[in-house]
Design a protein around this nucleic acid. Structure first.
Length: 744
RNA sequence: GGGCCCGUAGCUCAGCUGGUUAGAGCGUUCGCUUGACAUGCGAAAGGUCAGCCGUUCAAGUCGGCUCGGGCCCACCA
């Protein structure tokens, strides 16, 4: 290609993008150890690593536009720091996303007329594995199409054996430290998915339901759940409630109840709200979190009434086997027959707890789960996981760039509860736990028969040699493994390749992700990392907002307003999408994405293309090397102005990037290229170029500005800038714009 | 119940540590098929920066209150 004259008048992204990405990837420069031609005279400090972990996308669905935003921001930062000479590592990976994936996959099975309960665990796992592998490739291709300059040689999957090994080691250590324990307390049970869930994995919805007042001996009790009342042999009231002073804690009363007469015991507990209902309640510890806590305080009997599938148990007599809602109606009828219904309130509004995935009612159940203690001091004297995570902010070892989220983070930490990490699902990392059934000696008994075996290949109990051992069927909460991502990935890669990545690239510099997973993921990474490595997982947390549609609506499949990023790329090009995403919204705010905005940015890419055409058609090819700004003179007002503005732009874009103010950086370079360089200087140059006194110098200034613009714009719009650069300097890999030096 | 955020041009949003005539994109109006680009160029209209009070030489920017909108966490038998 001798000149730009042969090029089309318009930039056609589709014609260049795939080829350019391949050249980048083949060049090897995505890897941080690749040697950039110009970095030898940089100091070690200038060359220090810059590491970002890709927030591992779930391997169960294609990329959505939220991913596109995150990928864009991370790529901008990575490319910028690479051009600064730092060893930039952006490490890609994918999450098996246990529960999420299992739900998606089970839906698929349902459509195919089957279910996991008709398969063996092994069959299910294999089928899910294949499903995930397929999706994993789709998202990896999507990541490439977005231009992400991540190091694919380090690509990793959360179920890779090396990751699992790190996860197990953490579990073992936490168990030994007494931070992980197993407890048979009440948990959020989803009857559809047949698993316990963390509080974070449930949501609330306001419903108007009937609220029943029943005669319970001398009392009237209120309940919204008559079906749980079978086991209710305790009647609870506040110790200060004047209405009931004649009843003492521990009093026994005989009274008529659903299935005949029972003996009830009076319990005085401050959990009873004197303002609510009659101030008296009966409790069902097996099916209510609050009741369970009361029962624990007073060491009360706990009896299960409803099974895990939401059906009444035999202890309910004639109601046995009925579904909850059917039983509710029948029980009320029966109590009415016995004259025990005082009255019914039809307008009772309350919040019900739902599974965040399927929206079914959570039915609290007592199921043994494994927990991590959040507020327990470490045996080596270090503070609790929670306190370490808060101190990280106090000591500014970790900074949340978007300040408002620091408050959210702290507030959550203040109220944190122990984290249940076991799930009764099949798709995930199995717990490395066995239970000895015989318990022949003291060590066995002391440990309640629990054996932690990270090899997961146990056949006999190591303490008593019994062969009667069973493997815990549970798997880990996904966040237990992804919460270890920053160090687990580096450690796992070291194990795979014999490298020293953990030593070199940890702690990482930036964690860039959506604010919606600050508790699920970000907070946990901080805690786990301090625990395992005594270091923060990252220095900065950059939280982006939700991408919404042009009317600020949340995107959802049911609304039909989901924007497919790859579809947008097909129409407008990757650069246009990327620039539109970062252009006009500050960090942490939600981003409305209108098609017009993307279209406008496509126009901008084209503008740049045509600026290049103009500049290059006015230059001889041999002059392309005169990029040194030293030989430039400022002979006219226009010259002076553009050189000054260029300098201001370099400073503005650089400081914007350093301060994570990407939208300002983007606006600065946009404004310069379009409104300073093109609108003003190019127009002025048209007269200068025909005046011999100015012509040569004007060409130099034009070229210099073009080169600088391409560099400054490259992190934001990598494809069109690289396409122009290739036309100027050819396609050798050392000539890639991607690895040129950032202007200062 | 606890906490957080927002209210700037018709629409969507920028405006960092308070400092000259408050900005961008899209839209609107008028004029331009000029050899880089009509995916373009030039020009124009359009804002009492929700309201009130305060701090200050100076406030969209800081503080208080009011009105309006959104979000998060917890959760009631």
């Amino acid at each position: 290609m001798e000149t730009m004259e042969e090029l089309a008048k318009a930039y056609d992204p589709g014609q260049y993008e795939a080829d350019i990405y391949k050249r980048w990837e083949d060049s090897g420069f995505f890897a941080p150890e690749a040697h950039l031609p110009w970095v030898d005279n940089l100091s070690e400090a200038e060359r220090r690593p810059f590491t970002i972990m890709l927030p591992l996308p779930n391997a169960n669905a294609p990329l959505h536009v939220g991913h596109a935003l995150g990928l864009t921001i991370q790529d901008i930062l990575t490319r910028y720091h690479r051009m600064r000479g730092r060893r930039a590592l952006w490490l890609p990976g994918t999450d098996h996303a246990g529960f999420e994936t299992q739900v998606v996959f089970e839906k698929k099975l349902e459509k195919e007329g089957t279910s996991r309960f008709k398969m063996t665990r092994e069959e299910f796992y294999k089928a899910c594995w294949d499903f995930v592998q397929h999706n994993k490739h789709l998202s990896e291709n999507g990541i490439r199409r977005l231009g992400a300059s991540c190091d694919w040689s380090r690509n990793i999957f959360s179920l890779d054996p090396e990751i699992v090994k790190v996860v197990y080691a953490t579990f073992k250590q936490m168990y030994a430290d007494g931070l992980i324990y197993r407890a048979g307390r009440i948990c959020n049970w989803c009857p559809k998915h047949q698993t316990g869930l963390a509080d974070l994995e449930t949501k609330y919805e306001e419903r108007q339901e009937q609220f029943y007042y029943f005669k319970y001996g001398p009392f009237v009790i209120g309940t919204s759940r008559p079906e749980t009342k079978f086991g209710d042999k305790y009647v609870v009231m506040h110790p200060d409630d004047k209405r009931y002073t004649r009843y003492k804690h521990g009093d026994k009363l005989n009274l008529e109840w659903i299935n005949g007469s029972i003996t009830a015991t009076v319990i005085k507990d401050e959990a009873a709200d004197m303002e609510f209902g009659t101030g008296v309640m009966t409790i069902t510890p097996a099916h209510s979190a609050v009741d369970f806590e009361i029962a624990e305080r007073h060491k009360l009997d706990v009896e299960q009434v409803i099974d895990k599938r939401g059906k009444m148990l035999p202890m309910t007599g004639e109601f046995s086997g009925m579904k909850i809602l059917d039983a509710r109606v029948k029980i009320v009828e029966k109590l009415q027959g016995k004259g025990l219904v005082d009255h019914i309130d039809d307008k009772y509004k309350h919040n019900v707890q739902l599974c965040y995935k399927c929206g079914n009612l959570i039915e609290p159940q007592i199921v043994p789960q494994w927990y991590i203690a959040m507020t327990k001091q470490l045996p080596d004297g270090r503070p609790s996981l929670r306190d370490m995570a808060v101190q990280a902010l106090d000591k500014k070892e970790v900074e949340i760039v978007t300040e408002k989220f620091e408050k959210t983070y702290r507030h959550w930490m203040e109220n944190i509860r122990d984290w249940p990490i076991s799930r009764q699902i099949w798709w995930g990392i199995p717990l490395p736990v066995w239970y000895c059934q015989r318990m022949q000696n003291d060590e066995c008994r002391m440990k309640n028969g629990v054996i932690v075996d990270v090899e997961n290949t146990l056949t006999v109990c190591p303490h008593c040699d019994s062969t009667e051992i069973i493997h815990d069927p549970d798997t880990f909460d996904t966040w237990f493994s992804s919460g270890q991502w920053p160090y687990a990935t580096l450690m796992a890669n070291d194990a795979k390749h014999g490298t020293k990545d953990f030593e070199t690239y940890f702690p990482t510099q930036v964690m860039e992700t959506g604010w919606d997973i600050i508790f699920f993921w970000v907070a946990r990474m901080v805690m786990m990392s301090y625990y395992r490595t005594s270091k923060p997982p990252f220095e900065k947390i950059f939280l982006h907002g939700l991408v919404r549609d042009k009317d600020r609506q949340k995107m959802s499949k049911s609304k039909g307003n989901v924007i497919d990023p790859l579809g947008v790329i097909d129409t407008y090009g990757t650069d246009a999408l990327r620039f539109a995403l970062v252009f006009s919204t500050a960090a942490g705010n939600d981003i409305p994405l209108a098609e017009d905005k993307v279209k406008g940015m496509k126009h901008f890419a084209n503008k740049l293309w045509n600026i290049a055409r103009f500049v290059l058609t006015n230059l001889e090819v041999s002059k392309l090397q005169i990029s040194s700004s030293k030989s430039i003179e400022t002979k006219t007002e226009a010259d002076k102005t553009i050189i000054l503005e260029l300098q201001q732009t370099i400073e503005g874009v650089t400081s914007g990037l350093e301060a994570f103010r990407l939208h300002e950086a983007a606006q600065t370079i946009y404004d310069f290229v379009w409104h300073k360089l093109a609108d003003v200087y190019l127009e002025a140059s048209k007269t200068q170029l025909v005046d011999e006194a100015f012509a040569d110098n004007t060409k130099k200034i034009l070229l210099h500005n073009l080169i600088m613009s391409l560099k400054l714009l490259h992190p934001f719009m990598p494809f069109v800038t690289e396409a122009i650069w290739s036309e100027m300097y050819g396609k050798e890999k050392e000539k890639l714009l991607m690895i040129q030096k950032w202007p200062i």
